[in-house]
Nucleic acid binder design. Sequence first.
DNA 1: TTCATGTATGAATCGAATC
DNA 2: GGATTCGATTCATACATGA
Lengths: 377, 377
Amino acid sequence: MGQLLTKERIRARAPAPVPKELLPLGQILDGDCIAAMRSLPDASIDMIFADPPYNLQLGGDLSRPDGSHVDAVTDHWDKFDSFATYDAFTRAWLAEARRILKPDGSLWVIGSYHNIFRVGASLQDAGFWILNDIVWRKANPMPNFKGTRFTNAHETLIWASMGEKAKYTFNYTAMKTLNDELQMRSDWVLPICGGQERLRKGGHKVHPTQKPESLLYRVMLATTKKGDVVLDPFFGTGTTGAVAKRLGREWIGCEREGLYRDAALERIEAALPLDESALKIMQSKRAAPKVAFGTLVETGWIAPGTVLTDKKRRFSASVRADGSLLNGTLTGSIHSVGAGVQGAPSCNGWTFWHLEHQGGWKPLDAIRQLYLLSTEP
Amino acid sequence: MGQLLTKERIRARAPAPVPKELLPLGQILDGDCIAAMRSLPDASIDMIFADPPYNLQLGGDLSRPDGSHVDAVTDHWDKFDSFATYDAFTRAWLAEARRILKPDGSLWVIGSYHNIFRVGASLQDAGFWILNDIVWRKANPMPNFKGTRFTNAHETLIWASMGEKAKYTFNYTAMKTLNDELQMRSDWVLPICGGQERLRKGGHKVHPTQKPESLLYRVMLATTKKGDVVLDPFFGTGTTGAVAKRLGREWIGCEREGLYRDAALERIEAALPLDESALKIMQSKRAAPKVAFGTLVETGWIAPGTVLTDKKRRFSASVRADGSLLNGTLTGSIHSVGAGVQGAPSCNGWTFWHLEHQGGWKPLDAIRQLYLLSTEP
DNA sequence: TTCATGTATGAATCGAATC
DNA sequence: GGATTCGATTCATACATGA
């Protein structure tokens, strides 16, 4: 078993695989992740999922418009002196990760714009070969309260093999099935972790950055086989372990905070392998195609300056560059200006406003339908 | 003009702005982008949009920091050398970009997983401060034909200011309007460039990676003002120039391929600028002319003695002749009394205090809007 | 029980001008 | 340059409360 010299091993000049009995399966290694990984043998892990500190570098306190306080990530483990310090830390854990991964294993890392560019460059430098970058589009992100930037509504994952020519596992058909018979894309719409799933103690969240199980579910289903060994060097409250158990994968974690370790063990203990019907519930729905009026302006379907009227041509308004309408001194969205000219409390601008199109007088909604048709796969 | 020492410039210790007459507006500079940028004065550009080469194999497009040409990378290239060469090239053009950007200017870069992590890390190292990473989610991407990875369905843009404390332009309200009254998020769904928009010659596309105008439209509408100078160091077939002309922004391009320059000039020549009224965008209150509460009292919009309450009528205060409020022994501005009655550290009196107006219960802000409309030219 | 309403909150690099 | 003042700013979801 496993010690025989198979054709594949000879061709790959790979050493004999490490027997699973020598690995601390189903255990959370205490302490610093680099030291913990050092205790593992070479080429023994099938997949690593890493959620390292993001190095957020937050400024002062932040309040919502209603005056309530935003509970930020201020934990000591997210603090680094400089980019150089963070890079050194990143290179160190990536080197250990590379040593313990099998030649046909793969690496996942998740991050935000604060750290992901540094991590991505470092892992390329270390010899990893990027297979995809995946965008987790959050269905329900925190808004930008001060109106100073775009709402930070996504995080980025990198999926990489051991090298340009290295093999890796990708369950293409499973992904296609999960995505209603269309190829799974590099952008995934998933909700953030909350509700029942969020671990709480005394009314407070146990970990500030607990990841949703749906995210790990898709990662593991896509890029590991049943029985594979998955390592998470930043285990936290054990989402990776819980999902691994549910999907019949082996897991190993590294975590230095005792509070997190305890919560994770309790959680994983309670996790049950999923049956088929439960799997279906985990599937993500495809994002409903939603088109903002501004998109039609940006994409040239409706030119700025176009004059819109209502069906009976009693009212008119002109389109501006940002998709707002102008009627005398009245400006705003298609809905608010539609309401304004009628003196109505509200109005569906999509059906209220009309324009000349191909010889006919059509509601905006008809243009939106045409746009949607043109962008369908 | 422009050479006078204004209050603002003295306070900011900024040098005199560069007169636009000294800039090659509406021109495509021939040659290597680094050399071309070197011909531009310091602190003269409001925004840079850069679409650099994505891949090391496109070695022909690369130059060394000294501007000399890098021979095509052939069979013997080594991965480390290639990344290092690409990084050196990136650092070189970023350094020039930084020199010519105004202190309150901003930088946009677009890339894919092949290069964006290296570019992102380099621009952080150069002192740029990332404001957002933006995901361009392609509505109609190329499928993954071999079924070996996830469909690569997005590209990444980075938007960065000149530094952590630097100012920058963000037309928050215009973006919110463009997105049907919801904050614009960091993930943008836009179609790829095709159909009529795609430049072709003899049945073949002129440029392999022509960007859609809708993408540049959103970038420019969000982060530049009318009349701003936009530079594109990798001009290609001139999408940046065409959109700049349409939106009333000035543009400068750098492009070494004569074929692309010719196609770009022809295309931009044909582009039609939007007229003034269509160009107007929704102004945020920050940018709107300020109205003091006292002005509403002075001009009779709100009579001294009027009683204001909060929305739920828990608190009340009366208006005094000088525009101050009175609540028991508490007196002061609409903001400080609003904060005082709630025991809150701060309060926006404009939205907190309400009064009876034309049969309805309206916030002070609504009266301010009416006043502003009445005074508009 | 169901529905309507109110409140809490999530990896956030979140203000600008004047004194 | 630091402190102070003015006043601009939120989306989706979960859950508790009350009708």
